[in-house]
Design a protein around this nucleic acid. Structure first.
Lengths: 217, 217, 217, 217
DNA sequence: CATGAATGAGACTTCATTCAT
DNA sequence: TATGAATGAAGTCTCATTCAT
């Protein structure tokens, strides 16, 4: 950082430290856009404002760059969410709805969804990535949802149920939305395209209805 | 096939007829395994026991080979399914359940599902494939489900609804299963893995419950 | 020929003998159209109504096929012309004009010109063809023109001159017309295209004027 | 270029500048020798002392490489020639003779002529090259000759005439010489070969005689 | 640290030629 | 004799990776 020296050196020093981050950012965008195979390292470098050679100074190969992108990008966002859950005071059905909405806002409609799409698409080619993602995202996410459902059961709002199973029911519409949005949808613009929020809402209603202890009575 | 020539299998001639099938089979396996871009035509040919050149005798390009695989593997199924629907005599809820089960048996758990995964993964890179798939698979599938739902409405079993929306609700769990099975699942074998049939069943129940016109009153 | 047996065998017998001719004819057309390299033997065979394999029964290679075409197509047309010259009775200037016109009609505007173009185009890649053509066509043509000019000199119509040189002057516009017609002209249709007959006429006039022994005086 | 670093020639940097020229030179030789289709880019690269990939660093395709060769070899000459015409002060007949001589020296007897031969030979197979050549060389050449003839008419040296037609008369002997020299001639070295300069001279004389407005009267 | 020129393996595709039938 | 399925060398072009500067 070397504070207030003349500007050029400062910029250089700052850049030097920023390099990996800039490269990862550029790589993220391109990987999400075009997938692993179709992304050229030269383009990544260009977008990060450095030369191809420089990229290889920081990442020993395209594959490692890819792994780094995934690792870097999906670092634990779950603490925040966990806190929100813990401090939530309403009924669990509302909590579920809230969570699904905020998922859409914070993930589904952002670039983060691109990462999920990317990982799912390339997982079979990069088992390591897949298991990393599983460990780092899937499992924590799973746990988070589990905790929410447990809260509902504990508070006698939800009937007892197979938690794992229920979790997948909640995840499914989100994965579906992501894949749809990032694969077929962009290529084949149609009228019959999905309204994501409405879709999420209706899925939530159906699922909650099925979970709730005595819908009426 | 070629009629009743019981004579010793004319090797060259028989091969001519067998070739496309062998190539298609090899291609299916490799495409499912490695995706479209990462599959090399030479490897497809090798696995089918022929040379690179021979493949191009039967399919003019890698892309056409892929389309042929799709046609062979998926597209042809819809007439069969349509027939089954038309001749079905029970209530529509059972029909929906039946269809989802047979989907799992005929597509979901077979290599055909790998093709769907592949298309969703690489759609953005090969727009022509994406639109081919949309045209050849997605749209017919959409229509098929629509018809089933309409049947339910016509017979006063289902309440009136936004059909497109409902179709997506039915598709979502299938897409989810496919993506799950072909991306994260194979790399991270866990106990908490999904039991597909049970998942399909429970999704069906939820959805049907939401659709039915007051089962009682 | 086996005369009057039943028709099928006759046809087969006749075809068998006709094969090489049909192949040569087909090859001629295609070579003229597309040149040597761009002509595919399969297309030649198809146009002759036989299979690729059959072609190689008659000609051991594409190159030999090409040579055969040249041999067959341009073999001695010169005797006819030589006779015409010998029996011509008018003045030599008219003879020259006549010859140039009949060249245009019999060669320049026919497929034969395509062969010339072809040979000149591919000569450097097939020296053997070139020397064959030189021997079989160029030299006889050269001699023919030479004889005509000598006739003019002998009859005191033309002034004495370097015959070789004069021959080239007469050949030049023909070669030019052929090359123009078969290369740039077809690709770039313009208004400023050449009227071949008028061009030949004016060239003839210029050349004859230069050759004649005292146009006036 | 890179400023005034008088230091020992920076090898890598200097090469960067030299590459295109070296490649162009190698390409010119090979194109002239073997034609467009038969020249392999790998061989061009090898002759320039670089690898296949390097060539594509400088020229995006074989066709663009060829165009660059044409631009370098021929197309650039016209401004020079136009200047010479404009500053010429003698009579137009002399100008025509001068031009034809300098054409022989700068084009006809150099490798540039080989390019013209190549284009005429392969035009039908590579329409884009043909039209490029038409645009870049034929048309400018045509215009140049036209201007010269117009000068003669304007100065009352030449009689009025159909300019397009006259242009072709002037072009014809050059095309003929090129085709002769690069097709039949090299394969069949004879005594009766053409003396190009003498041929040009005599053609010029004939044509000028035909054009001049009564040399005496 | 950074550059970017250079590499070369490898991708898809074409087609003359062979050979079992 | 005729076929046509099969081959495999060759061609153009791409791009991850290296390394001299």
């Amino acid at each position: 950082m070397s504070a207030a020296s003349t500007s050029p050196p400062v910029r250089r020093a700052r850049r030097k430290e920023a390099r990996p981050g800039e490269l990862l950012e550029a790589a993220l965008e391109l990987f999400v856009d075009k997938g692993f195979a179709a992304t050229r390292v030269e383009e990544v470098a260009a977008r990060a404002g450095v030369s191809k050679g420089t990229l290889f100074l920081y990442f020993p190969s395209k594959e490692e760059l890819f792994k780094a992108v995934v690792r870097e990008t999906i670092a634990g966002r779950f603490t925040e969410w966990n806190d929100e859950i813990q401090s939530f005071e309403g009924d669990t059905a509302s909590l579920v709805r809230d969570l699904m909405h905020s998922w859409w806002e914070r993930v589904g409609q952002t670039q983060a969804a691109g990462i999920t799409k990317l990982v799912m698409s390339e997982a079979s080619l990069f088992p390591e990535i897949a298991s990393f993602y599983q460990h780092e995202v899937i499992t924590p996410g799973h746990q988070l949802i589990r905790r929410v459902l447990q809260r509902g059961i504990d508070r006698r709002e939800f009937r007892p149920m197979d938690l794992d199973h229920a979790v997948y029911s909640l995840i499914a519409p989100m994965i579906f939305l992501i894949m749809w949005k990032h694969s077929l949808a962009p290529c084949c613009p149609r009228d019959e395209s999905i309204d994501p929020l409405r879709f999420i809402d209706s899925q939530a209603s159906l699922l909650l209805e099925g979970m709730q202890l005595r819908p009426a009575a």
